[in-house]
Design a protein around this nucleic acid. Structure first.
Lengths: 227, 227
DNA sequence: ACAAAAGTGTTGTCCGTACACCCATGT
DNA sequence: ACATGGGTGTACGGACAACACTTTTGT
């Protein structure tokens, strides 16, 4: 082989949160070159003896103070020139959090951290815009065949929240009656004996996702599927 | 940071071929430690200035003499101890070939290369068994919502070939009449004016996959979908 | 003439979709 | 009493699943 390989391995995370009826992404402001003062995905180099998942979790904790509710590998990026300094292969992750459960906090390095509406993103460092696009597609796809929407809502939620979340992420109208009928038919929700009034209008019932029940049904061959 | 990072980046490929009515995987016999003389997935370290895809294609050409018909990234593996020598992160790929279009040939290093029935795999090096399991699931999934089965058949094929391929990979019975009706309704096949006799029985018509037509329909919102 | 594989149509069921009115509360 | 959001049932149509007989060839 011509030369010894010297490629760095990094991880980056696309963290989604659903806030104020919009889909948000967690970004940090870089305080080192290159792309100093640009916004970027949280992430960094993998340590010598840590797994990829651990690396993501560590970087997220360090840079944003967030612990994720759902994490899965997204895709790996390795174009030779994606980092201007030296070659970096980045293994990216897809994560979901319940924003109200966490207080984001910038690093000691005085970076900034913030949630951005996915439709109002700033300029991004490296190829991070492309990574986000892929993550968005993954989210839209997964939402239809796995019950991951619940990882974006509070533990107790209104049916209308779930409905709005689906409409926001899938970017289409959904019929309220058919949607409720479908979801309820899966028998994976617990209807709580609590009602909440959203200012005006009839108070709505709170629901809880019953994960255990979901896995039981899944083992029996049931398929979660929302058009 | 504690120590400088020294992680190697490799690529490995799970290459599927459909031969003799069975699903096969392309393996090489290692001739260096560790796992000397074990069977393993083709792959190797990424060169300093080559993209990940190029690395896979180069390794496949070098180690097996195969050029793939379909290639996509599968998953990345990075447990700290997956390679006993030093830390290697492997970005794995999922590939399809038409076996009859290629002559496999072992490396100058006198490795061996062979197709293995996926149900009769030998012991495998590293975590390659796990990688193959994930690739198999990907293949089963993709087959139902993208027309990738055609990348495993000859350019001209019989309907019964397609049908058997689906039954073999999905491991279930398929009704011949409903299957044919469904596929034909997609309007992505060309019926050729050639018949082939398979020894005994009524000669069958040859078909060709019309990829252009497929992409045209796809742009118009058509979805390939086989239950 | 028989064995083997290819080719083809109809019917019932279920699921998805479309759609509108009443209910409980706050102001 | 009115405005606002919550909760619910029915009817139609299309897609999928189940199912069996005829055709063409080789032996």
């Amino acid at each position: 082989m011509a030369t010894l390989q010297n490629i760095k391995v990094a991880v980056d995370a696309v963290v989604f949160g659903y806030k104020d009826k919009t889909l948000n992404i967690l970004l940090i402001k870089r305080n080192i070159a290159p792309y100093k003062n640009s916004w970027a995905l949280p992430g960094g180099l993998v340590l010598e003896n840590e797994s990829l998942e651990k690396a993501v979790e560590r970087e997220l904790k360090e840079e944003t103070n967030v612990t994720v509710d759902y994490l899965e590998q997204l895709y790996s990026f390795g174009k030779p020139d994606r980092d201007p300094r030296n070659r970096v292969v980045s293994i990216t992750y897809f994560a979901l959090v319940k924003p109200e459960h966490h207080t984001i906090k910038a690093d000691t390095d005085a970076n900034d951290v913030a949630w951005f509406d996915i439709n109002k993103l700033p300029e991004l460092a490296f190829d991070h815009k492309e990574i986000i696009n892929i993550a968005k597609k993954r989210l839209q796809g997964k939402l239809t065949y796995e019950p991951i929407g619940f990882d974006l809502l509070n533990t107790k939620f209104l049916f209308s929240d779930l409905e709005k979340l689906y409409m926001t992420i899938l970017q289409k109208q959904i019929d309220r009656r058919n949607f409720r009928k479908k979801i309820l038919s899966f028998n994976i929700l617990e209807e709580l004996d609590e009602r909440v009034s959203e200012g005006r209008g009839r108070p709505a019932n709170l629901f809880k996702f019953n994960k255990k029940q979901y896995f039981k049904h899944k083992k029996d061959g049931f398929l979660f599927d929302i058009k």
